[in-house]
Design a protein around this nucleic acid. Structure first.
Lengths: 255, 255
DNA sequence: ATGGTATATTGGTCATACCAACGAGTTATA
DNA sequence: TATAACTCGTTGGTATGACCAATATACCAT
């Protein structure tokens, strides 16, 4: 009935206006904005508030300010919206590692639960996803997608809506973190793909047999394997980062 | 060949530092940041620059500023947890039940982990929270807050930043769902308070003794108990829900 | 044609003052 | 006694004016 009133700051109104002008196309890429001092006059606010607004827009990636030159509209393609968690992860692989622990814990619980309360619907869904996975494997295709989908189908079978949403988010974030690297690692190892598929198969079989404990155990093996793989990848990433630390800190101000 | 040099603004350095503190867990969810004026002194910069940094962090969703009160660290997993929950929860209390399952799973893992890698700092933090709980209990006060704090102190001891943020969000949502009702239930039962405290004590003792398995088991007992309690409450709520539908939907947008 | 220089413009930072919202403790009131 | 109203210190929000630093431009020297 009543909505809470969040006091809007002046800068919010400015952000809103400028954002609209950009979306409507009135302000085109590379257009130069009025100087801060003049914007302040136009809006009849202080320069502080204008700057606050411009900072927000800059953080959103909509504009870019260049000292001594001016403020310019940025082509939208340049702006990559960064989610809070994701930006964290990119800078510090350890965070991804932590998230992986959480994933393991929840998924192990989920598979047991899913197996216990498996019904026909869930069973069919899981089968479908597994067959996709199998197909990809036999064709030698990247299984990145079907892999995730298979795991998610199992998780969904646990019939916990919140968990499903949560895990979907987590998988998304993890995928961002691992991205191409994982597939790359697998290629490098060669044997992994087969091993990986067999692990999936063992989990799948246990579920279909309605053996919760076996399902949990088999998944545990799989996840431990992934984990190692994942850790290794993160480790490489992390070390590569450190090696270039000097370079980075030297280039700290560079783009 | 040559990379362009983008001069870093002062606020960027501040953002970076604070972001790191959050990531490392030094700044935990709901922690209060120093006032802007004092931050300015600490960093030896002007308040403007501090504000610029805080605005950016706010835009990233890592903190939230409240006029007249202060600036606080926001759990960075709010989105992951609440995307799935918020909207459902209010429509269907059963969702809270699901969330409780997730809590159980994660917390059981956390307590084991925490006990395994318990160091002095964590130990002291947990002791402090437990003594608060004990005090509340002996004084017959509502233990709602100290209860949560105790649980969270244990979770923090697992040293998984993402988990800490996540569980903070979960507890928040759960508390929202249960609200006053829980305390009410306890009062109605009479015996519960003592039993509840003893359960906490058993968990606490096991942790201090560095016995991971016992800690896990004792917590499991506690959570099962809570669980039952919780379910009962939800059940009542759910039945009452239809009667008071109007009331609930009225409050839907309130905070 | 190249490189240096002067200057006006513009974003970046700082200091200060005041306003507005909040929390906590105190007092007044029912 | 309980509760409402008030006071006051703290803290974020806004305004202003000053100065610094980077940039573009035009002009000058070589």
């Amino acid at each position: 009935m009543f909505k809470t009133i969040k006091p809007k700051r002046i800068s919010d109104y400015i952000v809103e206006q400028i954002e609209n002008l950009i979306r409507k196309g009135t302000l085109k890429p590379d257009d130069k904005l009025l100087p801060e001092r003049e914007l302040a006059k136009k809006f009849n606010v202080s320069r502080s508030s204008v700057r606050e607004a411009l900072n927000i827009l800059q953080e959103k990636g909509l504009i870019v300010s260049i000292q001594g030159d001016g403020t310019f509209i940025r082509p939208l393609t340049d702006s990559i919206v960064q989610d809070g968690v994701r930006s964290f992860m990119k800078r510090d692989p350890a965070t991804a590692w932590e998230l992986m622990d959480i994933r393991k814990t929840l998924e192990l619980w989920a598979v047991k639960r899913a197996t216990e309360m498996l019904d026909e619907n869930s069973s069919n869904a899981i089968k479908e996803m597994f067959y996709d996975l199998e197909k990809d494997y036999k064709l030698g295709k990247r299984s990145e997608n079907s892999d995730t989908e298979f795991h998610l189908s199992v998780i969904k079978a646990a019939k916990n809506t919140v968990l499903t949403h949560m895990m979907t988010s987590i998988f998304q974030v993890l995928r961002d973190a691992v991205n191409i690297g994982r597939e790359y690692l697998l290629d490098a190892k060669g044997f992994s793909k087969e091993k990986l598929f067999n692990q999936h198969k063992m989990v799948f079989d246990a579920i279909i047999k309605k053996d919760p404990l076996m399902a949990e155990n088999n998944l545990k093996k799989h996840l431990s394997f992934i984990d190692k793989d994942f850790k290794e990848y993160l480790y490489k990433m992390y070390n590569a980062k450190n090696k270039e630390k000097m370079k980075i800190s030297n280039n700290e101000n560079m783009n």
